[in-house]
Design a protein around this nucleic acid. Structure first.
Lengths: 125, 125
DNA sequence: CTCAATGTACCAATACAACGCTACATTCGG
DNA sequence: CCGAATGTAGCGTTGTATTGGTACATTGAG
């Protein structure tokens, strides 16, 4: 698994982990039926407590991404698609946050859009 | 002053206030020499504690935007421009955050860019 | 000088996250 | 059947961030 946790980031570790796994499933790097590392194993690899990984798994299961069963492990269950309204609302929130940051920095709109395009097309940077 | 605080937002009130005032100064809606509302007055208007507004003012003063003196009030001091490296770094952070949200939502890149453009050009929405 | 208005500094309470830990239920393999 | 591995649930502790309130210092007006 390609996951990175930054302890100094603003987002708490369990949230970073949740978002990254969700993105891996969305982008197809994890497919339906794939088995995820065990809670304890992943926690050890990432230097986290088991409870922290458990929380990320729990939220992903509640969202429909995963299915975890005792003794069997946790597997990718589905790629849930949110209702259109929910998705556009969340997208608007994210765009608003980006726009606010850009405005505070005094960055030109075209530069901001080019930067966004760059990060949207080149995830690894 | 045109400021809105959403108590349910992810960002804490003092940070929302700080960012909005910084944006007002950057965009010229507040000019150098303009006097801001007093800490207590603004706190009362926004339904916040005085200490919360004081923190926003304090951080803006540390960043060079404001100058506050006891008995005199707080005025816009300057429009500090960050070093280029700092600005691009912060812009990249914001863009990364936006890209991560888009990827998790499974939204098309073009849709994401159009949404970003919309919010960048139409602040009031 | 006196006083009101203002910014500054500090402290207690609260909430949240993370951690380490324990106990328990379930599944599978031997 | 038995044990190892797994997920689930909960506990108390610790550290941090935020808030609200209070006391203090400074300034300018009368």
């Amino acid at each position: 698994m390609i996951v990175e946790i930054d302890p100094d980031a603003v987002a708490p570790p369990y949230e970073q982990l949740r978002a990254q796994i969700a993105a891996l499933i969305r982008t197809g790097r994890l497919s339906v039926g794939d088995r995820l590392p065990s809670i304890r194993h992943l926690a050890h690899d990432l230097g986290l407590a088991a409870g922290t990984v458990a929380r990320a798994y729990r939220e992903l299961e509640a969202a429909g991404y995963l299915r975890g069963r005792a003794g069997q492990g946790t597997v990718v269950r589905d790629i849930p698609h949110l209702p259109e309204s929910e998705r556009t609302a969340r997208l608007a929130d994210a765009a608003r946050a980006y726009a606010a940051a850009v405005r505070e920095l005094g960055v030109d709109v075209d530069v901001a859009l080019a930067t966004a395009r760059h990060h949207l097309t080149d995830p690894g940077d």
